[in-house]
Design a protein around this nucleic acid. Structure first.
Length: 426
RNA sequence: GUGAGCGUAGCUCAGCUGGUGGUAGCACCGGGUUGUGGCCUCGGCGGUCGUGGGUUCAAGUCCCAUCGCUCACCCCA
């Protein structure tokens, strides 16, 4: 029994080779979608000044209050491992003057995020997101395009989820709605659960998605943000709904949907599944029109979303798509020391020809080497024994049909690899 | 931060009211085939039963503590 005293941190996971293929599939599919929608990749740091997140996400949000990995840097300044991607991208956008490059920036980024929460199914302390940020457009069609990207990714990787949309209003209409809602809550405060009583002060919008049936019964007659949008927000939301429909993207309006970050305005949305236990959201996002300016940039509107990689991986492997096996073109089998020596060089030459080739260096039996070829999912096995070496030939075995072919080789060793490559075109 | 459940082989798990740790499955290695994989068959390798105390003639099993994991709440991707 191996007793390992140093284990991975709580909530931090290794992604093992068995699973890595699925990750690659998801990431490649998503990149392909991003490029079809004209997005460009941006890579931003994992570590930022703490202040960046406090100012964007909101000082009183759960993320900032209790979930950030924050340290003192060696010079004493506070730094934080990013809990989400938008803040860093906006910072980079402003810092590098991307706004002068022209109209609309369409960006995507993929990478790890960190939140110090109690782990559970579908929730880790280090998790990975693919996220999109589109900066510089007010158009409702951009909202729709952004949702279409998320929709397209799910389609292409073969998953289903329901899309819920809402509008949270803007600086003009949200504050007054908040007051109306708070009034409503005050009147029945004693009927609400402890959480809602607390939230009615700190974050009144949040009460609306309380899971208590009792509270929900109270909220049946609650005022809805949708009914209190200003003219501009109402028009925008109508156009979003209309254009979503025009693309045949099905959605449901959920006026009780609230998001955990303060910066959202107008359109917000979530992609929800029922197949992941308590963690239903596999992707979520929204518009953040004041954010760039709030960070000291120009008055530029934005919208974005993030998808949780782990949750996608989990859904796919639950559906049995877990095995995306790696494939080898050729497994080189050698028998005897001389053949092994020659084979080693031949393997390198075959690789230089662009083939995926492996061999065994443990001196195992032919039976074992064939087994390895099978395990590695090789198309062909190439047998090079003492006998073949003497006769200037190799045996090429098709691992699927089991058929074997004797290949005659020229005395010139350099000619071997091209000849073998010719034979295994599939 | 709060609550519940679970820790036995590398992995998945049996192990009853305490009485010698399972020929268990998967994986790995070897034989059955002097140089031919998948299927089959035979064998082999592999355990401080999470850790520390306690109860008992006797603890994987009961009790306490501790660590770890999992799920849920809160919140979120």
């Amino acid at each position: 029994m191996i007793i390992l005293s140093i284990k991975a941190l709580k909530g931090f996971k290794d992604i093992l080779p068995d699973e890595a293929g699925l990750w690659q599939f998801i990431e490649q599919t998503a990149r392909d979608v991003f490029h079809r929608y004209g997005l460009e990749e941006i890579k931003v740091p994992i570590l930022e000044k703490t202040e960046l997140f406090v100012r964007t996400i909101g000082a009183s949000t759960d993320i900032v209050e209790k979930e950030m990995y924050t340290f003192e840097d060696r010079n004493g300044s506070l730094i934080t491992m990013r809990p989400e991607g938008t803040a860093s991208v906006i910072r980079a956008y402003i810092e590098n003057g991307l706004f002068v490059r022209g109209a609309v920036q369409r960006l995507y980024t993929i990478g790890p995020m960190f939140r110090h929460e109690r782990p559970q199914k579908g929730r880790l302390r280090q998790f990975h997101q693919m996220s999109v940020e589109v900066l510089g457009s007010n158009s409702a069609r951009i909202d729709t395009e952004v949702m279409a990207i998320a929709w397209q990714i799910l389609q292409d990787i073969g998953l289903q989820a329901s899309l819920e949309v809402n509008s949270l209003g803007c600086a003009a209409c949200r504050p007054s709605f908040k007051e109306i809602l708070q009034e409503f809550l005050q009147e029945r405060l004693s009927h609400l659960c402890d959480d809602c009583q607390r939230r009615s002060n700190t974050n009144p919008l949040r009460v609306l998605d309380c899971k208590s049936e009792h509270c929900q019964a109270e909220y049946v007659s609650a005022p809805s943000i949708i009914d209190h949008l200003c003219q501009g927000c109402r028009d925008h939301f109508e156009e979003v709904k209309q254009t979503l429909s025009s693309l045949n993207i099905s959605f449901a309006v959920n006026p009780k949907m609230v998001r955990g970050l303060d910066y959202y305005t107008r359109t917000t949305f979530e992609l929800i599944t029922t197949e992941l236990g308590a963690q239903g959201a596999i992707g979520a996002g929204g518009r953040y029109d004041g954010l760039v300016q709030q960070l000291g940039g120009p008055e530029v509107p934005g919208i974005g979303f993030a998808m949780g990689m782990e949750r996608l991986v989990m859904l796919l492997s639950q559906k049995g798509h877990g095995e995306i096996s790696h494939v080898l073109d050729l497994f080189l089998i050698t028998l005897g020391e001389k053949a092994h020596e020659k084979g080693f060089i031949l393997m390198q030459m075959l690789r230089a020809q662009g083939l995926r080739v492996m061999m065994d260096h443990e001196g195992r039996s032919m039976k074992n080497q064939l087994k390895q070829a099978d395990k590695q999912n090789a198309w062909f096995a190439l047998i090079l024994g003492e006998r073949e070496l003497e006769n200037l030939e190799v045996v090429l075995k098709d691992m699927h049909s089991g058929e074997q072919e004797l290949i005659e080789l020229a005395p010139a060793f350099e000619d071997w690899a091209p000849v073998i490559k010719q034979k295994i075109k599939h």
